[in-house]
């Protein structure tokens, strides 16, 4: 497989996953802020700020908008073409990548992506948002899910597929860590206690952003406890959006591509050493360890290590594109 194609398909996958997670995060938070009986104005303000912080796009946001309001954040994260990480920009980038690897992905995958792109381009998506944000996010999520389903059902599960999977899971691990991190940036109103109503609502929103509420409840029978939510999203072995699950899947695809056995432990491939090490840490870390380090610092560390893995993947398979 051509190195350029591998790189293109890896990023195609990351962009789609990024678009999907942006939609998830905004959907849940938008609904949360509508709950006016619990949340006052000052609080909603903080809420939107925390989203921008967690995306690490604060500087760009401040250049483009006079202040942090719900409308501005939604515009910035959903539709802003100057924001390379907005849903619209991610879809444009994903489609452009798809266009250059059409010989590798199935026609159905391209058409699904193209339909979503055309709906943004024609203003249809924006109209849908104005008439119902709920419908818009549902449409965006479904569109991304449809893409993943079509990919699974129509694309050969060969090397290209493994690059697609690596992109998806690496991006998803990163996004889950950021969604979890939002909770760090949200300050509780002064009069509120940890474990109080608002705290619980916030943790529930975090879970919901990852479609994790239902599996979580099955596992813990209803109790929304902060450390349990964090543990679930970091360490759960079977929930497909937990960081550990994502890194395990990434590690699997990596070994599929190199053909090296996971039990080899010689680590001739640096990317495999890094992903194996992160997977081991995620498997053996306790929540006590996490809170001793500090949740935010811990998640920050994970994001950094995911970045290193991504660089190592490029180095291993695509480095000579630069020569």
């Amino acid at each position: 497989m051509l190195s350029r194609v591998a790189d293109t398909i890896y990023w195609l996958s990351r962009y789609i996953e990024r678009a999907e997670n942006n939609a998830r995060m905004l959907d849940v938070n938008l609904q949360l802020t509508l709950d006016a009986t619990i949340l006052n104005h000052r609080y909603t303000q903080q809420h939107w700020e925390s989203i921008i912080y967690s995306l690490e796009d604060t500087k760009l946001f401040q250049e483009l908008y006079p202040g942090i309001t719900g409308e501005a954040v939604v515009e910035f994260v959903c539709f802003e073409r100057k924001n390379p990480n907005s849903i619209y920009s991610c879809l444009c980038a994903a489609r452009e990548n798809a266009r250059s690897v059409r010989e590798l992905i199935s026609s159905e995958m391209f058409e699904q992506l193209n339909r979503m792109y055309l709906d943004f381009r024609s203003g249809e998506a924006q109209r849908l948002f104005r008439s119902s944000s709920y419908q818009f996010f549902k449409w965006a999520l479904q569109g991304c899910h449809l893409f993943q389903g079509i990919a699974d059902a129509t694309m050969a599960h060969d090397e290209g597929w493994d690059f697609l999977q690596m992109g998806k899971f690496l991006e998803r691990a990163d996004r889950t860590s950021r969604i979890l991190d939002i909770k760090y940036h949200i300050l509780l109103p002064k009069e509120e206690e940890i474990g109080g109503t608002i705290d619980t609502v916030q943790w529930f929103a975090v879970l919901n952003s990852c479609s994790g509420a239902e599996p979580y409840r099955r596992l813990f029978q209803g109790q929304i406890a902060p450390w349990k939510v964090a543990e679930f999203l970091i360490k759960d072995a079977s929930f497909p959006r937990s960081i550990r699950f994502c890194v395990a899947s990434l590690d699997h695809s990596l070994h599929q591509i190199t053909g090296i056995d996971r039990g080899d432990f010689l680590y001739k491939v640096e990317a495999e050493r890094l992903s194996g090490k992160l997977l081991a840490d995620l498997s053996y870390v306790t929540m006590d360890d996490v809170f001793r380090i500090g949740l935010h610092q811990y998640l920050d560390g994970i994001q950094l290590r995911l970045g290193e893995i991504s660089k190592a993947i490029y180095k291993e398979f695509c480095e000579w594109l630069d020569t």
Binding site: M1, L2, S3, R4, V5, E103, C318, W320, L321
Partner: peptide, 22 residues
């Protein structure tokens, strides 16, 4: 069912045209 390439995907080495793969 063939590869589509751009110039940068290829390089000349040892008198042959080669493409850069994973």
């Amino acid at each position: 069912g063939i590869e589509i390439v751009v110039g940068a995907d290829m390089v000349v080495q040892g008198g042959y045209l080669m493409m850069k793969t994973t």
